[in-house]
Structures are given as structure tokens and as C-alpha cells.
Simulated assay, not measured.
Amino acid sequence: MKSHPSQLQVVDSDDLPGYPFTSDDQLGAHFFIAWHHREWLNSAMRLKGTPESRAIYFDLICVAQDQKPVGTLPDDDEQLAKLAGVPESHFRALRALEYGPLHKWQRCLCGDEIRLFHPRVLEMVSDAVSRKETNRARVEAANNEKRLQRLRKVLTGYHADLAKNDAAILFMDEWLVERTSYRTASWVERAITAWSNHLFDKNRR
């Protein structure tokens, strides 16, 4: 059996790559991974790894999705063996194979802790984070638009022309967001006053 390269090298932590995500980065409802099946079917790991190594390899990729930081694994054989559900001695033997369950996993720095990451798994996590941020931006944009529409509708009852003024709507919406989460009649009236004062100050310049 060939020894795993990481078991033969002493690496200074200063030389390790820093992991781009932290334990504070949460994916929320992260219930699936983007698995490129054609890439896997033609990979050296699938073609050359033993069935057991391949199974544990995939299991650990799934396990990494719920670790902190997401997408990493502990750099500890005892913990890895428990996560894989096999005796530690057996896990060490599998890890020593050229195409063992930690094929292409590398050490990295997660803050002050040394953990393991896989470049392909990192791409999966980055893709998931990107989708989350895109979705959040889409939801926020939709919420903002609904909030502006509600404000415009309320202002129609006060001053129809003012309700058609996009600049006024944006100014008053921002003014209200900064001051309250409630949009009662009294708050809307204060926002209208703030807009009037804003125009007055602007015209005095």
C-alpha cells in the first residue's frame, strides 16, 4: 500500500491556505449538493478507488456539508473514523491507499484551527453560498418593492401627486426604515413633513 502524501510531510501552518469561509457562515436550508455525476463517473477516484474507499469518500463529502466551517473535515483520524463509521485502525489503512477516502483532501487554516478541505467540495460550497446570496438579494428586492408600493398607496390618500413622485417615495421610505418598523398614520405624516423639510432645505442652498 502507498502512504498518503499528507502523512509523510510536515507542513508549517503559515504555508497552509486559508479557508475562505468561517464557522459563522451558515447556509440555512442546505439540503442538497450540486454533484456533477459525469465528472464523478470519469474520475480517477471512482475508476481506481476500492468500493469501500469510494463509499466513505462520498460519505465524508456529505458529512462536510454539516461541519463548521461548512465544507471542511477535522484533521484527526479518530474523529474521521467515527464520522465514517469504521474503526480507526481500518480508516488509517484505507487512508494509506493512493485512492483512499481522503483522496485530494488537503490541510488548510480555519482561523487558528487546521482542518481538511477538498477543492471540488469548496466549489460546491461557494456555489451554494452564491445561490443563497442571490436568493436573499432577490427576496430583499421583492420585499422593498412591496414596501414602496404600500407606501405609495397610503400616500395616495394624503396627496395624489406626492404619491406619484418616485423621489419622495424613496426618501420617505428610507426615512421610515431608519426610524421605525411601524407605518402608522402618524409616522407617515411625519415622513411627509420630513420630505417637505428636505425640499425646503434643498431650495435654500
Rank of each mutant, 00 (worst) to 15 (best):
L80P: 01
A81K: 03
L83C: 02
L83V: 00
A84M: 03
V86G: 00
S89F: 09
S89P: 02
S89W: 08
L94V: 00
R95K: 10
W105V: 01
Q106K: 15
Q106N: 15
C108Y: 07
C110Y: 04
D112F: 10
E113D: 09
E113V: 13
R115C: 14
F117G: 00
H118T: 08
P119M: 09
R120S: 13
V121T: 08
V121S: 00
V121M: 12
E123F: 09
V125T: 02
A128C: 05
V129N: 10
K132R: 15
R136H: 11
V139W: 06
A142G: 03
A142Y: 07
E145F: 13
K146H: 10
R147S: 15
R147G: 12
R152K: 15
V154F: 12
G157K: 08
D161Q: 13
L162G: 02
A163R: 06
A167D: 04
A168S: 04
I169T: 06
E174Y: 09
E174D: 07
L176A: 03
V177M: 10
V177P: 01
T180R: 11
T180N: 06
Y182T: 14
R183Y: 11
W187G: 05
E189C: 05
R190Q: 14
A191Y: 02
A191L: 03
I192S: 01
W195A: 03
W195F: 09
W195K: 06
H198E: 08
L199Q: 11
L199C: 13
F200H: 12
D201R: 14
D201Y: 11
K202F: 12
K202N: 07
